[in-house]
Write a protein that binds this DNA or RNA. Structure first.
Lengths: 332, 332
DNA sequence: GTGAAAGCGCTAACAG
DNA sequence: CTGTTAGCGCTTTCAC
């Protein structure tokens, strides 16, 4: 059976009014006289009327849908961001069209095309590295857009995130302060991880700290990647004193490998992660990591979009630094 | 600037054909003569035409969108299922409209209304416990629907999952075989966790195993809930020998609490989790848990829907048991 | 406060 | 293989 063939005109007839009136009751109840409104609402309930939102979208060119694109939902940090985003957007009456790129920039552009074809009212992207096409299409579309999980000077529209370079520097500074001298880095092979490495490396170089031994794995990275990566790092530099992992999953794997080898953490090796997953506080030893408020990041993005979409007074700033902090625990 | 005001008629004019022809080139290229097709494709590229999919949906009543509803994305198991679903659906040319209920059945019904209003081509729900309205609306809509993460005899349309009761029984059997006698259960306060408890309890009773001490927390549950819950369980029954947690997050918390108290696991207490998160194998001690192929579950759901949506020959079975297995590790 | 008319941009039939 | 004729079901003016 096809979707309830009850149309707005049926409701109108049942309530003894014109279609527009039904439409008004649905979208702006206060613009209709209480008695009329009640009659319409009853007819709607009686008939079980389900408005076809696509028709509405076509007529009004407002879809009440926002598109969001993440590399993968399997990384808890992105899932948390989407959780926050979806919650806020839902409360504001918007729905979430979600796509995954698998860390592929071309896949991202295809998703943008598809979402734009859907006439989404706004877009959320992950990161600030996109194809030229993504930038131009989004700018041409002129819809509110927020890029997440990083910062940059010339966002497509808005950015909400933190400086990945600065986070890397902060980790280096911390490790340096703890007296570590031989540094390693274990990363996912993607833009934001590379920026963390950049900051880390720069701060270490500035302090005269020598080379950073590096290994990276194709994202999405796993605990096993972390374990294997640490083994490689250790093979390349047996005297390694500290390793910064571009995410907590890798760090958990590194910790696991240390346990297997009987390598004392942080006694012989400091291990630092990134993003502060809940398990970071519960593992052995508790993981020192960079705390990112992933869910709040998504909520913030949602709030910004809701504000922009509501065409209310006031300019909305383009750059939103939500910062980060070091969660100092025992591993480093 | 509004979305590129290039219409299909503009493309048609530029290519010297009728609108339908453009439409055909876009939806079924082979149905158009090569020369015409090429001309149209060039015009599309030249003008940067972005078809308005909402207009198409309205005219054809096929949206190429599937709606999915989960309690929360913050639980890795649901996020993984959505990852698998989205991947498969994307490959089949469908997009994912995602909603979170926060474990609220009424919220679920509202989402169903909204999605149906969007004329989604199919729906994916979590669990088999829904309001009567959800059932009837979905059945009336007559779209392919799959319920996930559980099993039942009379699905709305299709189910793909496993028996939560049987999983609970299997855990009990395992613990019983290991000689445990005083059982506890730590659960999230939601349908599937309750079913796991049911099976667990039944199997224990059948073996003459006495009462099961129980504590539950409001979902989504955290590691802290697990730690606190174990403390409560121990307060109620200090001689506790085994605790089955309705998910790995709670189990991780329980493990943490044991460590704090110096309670030997599994020496003094067996701890068993559920879902087999990646960390389950990496924590200390490695967690015995019930392995659920969360991502494959989502892929399977996507495949079923794709098959049904493609109106190809062959009936599609309604009930799909993907099973579960015990991941026996050290904690229990 | 309510209604009438005129589309929104595309696809479904059916012709030719 | 291509074009013509009608809508899909709602919202938008602009009157009254």
């Amino acid at each position: 059976m096809k979707p309830s063939k009850v149309l707005m005109s049926d409701v109108a007839k049942a309530a003894g009014v014109a279609r527009v009136t039904v439409s008004r009751v649905l979208s702006d109840p206060d613009s209709v006289a209480p008695a009329t409104r009640a009659a319409v609402q009853e007819a709607v309930a009686q008939l079980g009327y389900v408005p076809n939102l696509n028709a509405g979208t076509l007529a009004s060119s407002r879809s009440r849908i926002v598109g969001a694109i993440v590399p993968t939902l399997s990384n808890a940090w992105f899932a948390d961001t989407m959780d926050g985003l979806s919650k806020v957007l839902g409360a504001a009456g918007y729905q979430l069209l979600l796509g995954q790129t698998g860390y592929d920039a071309d896949a991202e552009e295809k998703l943008v095309d598809a979402f734009l074809g859907r006439r989404v009212d706004a877009m959320v992207l992950t990161g600030t590295a996109h194809t030229a096409g993504v930038r131009s299409k989004l700018q041409k579309a002129g819809i509110p857009t927020v890029e997440c999980w990083d910062l940059c000077d010339d966002p497509i529209d808005m950015v909400v995130g933190f400086s990945n370079e600065a986070a890397g520097e902060a980790v280096a500074a911390h490790l340096l302060a703890r007296g570590r001298r031989r540094f390693g880095f274990l990363g996912a092979d993607e833009d934001r991880a590379r920026k963390r490495l950049q900051g880390y490396r720069a701060a270490i170089a500035r302090a005269g700290g020598g080379e950073v031994v590096t290994r990276s794995a194709a994202p999405p990275t796993s605990i096993d990647d972390g374990a294997a990566g640490l083994a490689q790092l250790l093979a390349a530099e047996p005297r390694l004193q500290a390793v910064f992992c571009s995410n907590d999953t890798l760090a958990l794997g590194a910790l696991l490998e240390c346990r297997r080898r009987g390598l004392a953490v942080p006694g012989e090796l400091s291990v630092v992660g990134f993003s502060d997953l809940p398990v970071a506080a519960a593992c052995v030893p508790p993981l020192t990591t960079v705390r990112i408020a992933s869910r709040e990041l998504g909520e913030r993005a949602g709030l910004l979009l809701a504000r922009r979409l509501s065409r209310e007074p006031g300019e909305v700033p383009r750059i939103h630094d939500i910062g980060f902090s070091l969660a100092l625990r025992e591993s480093g």
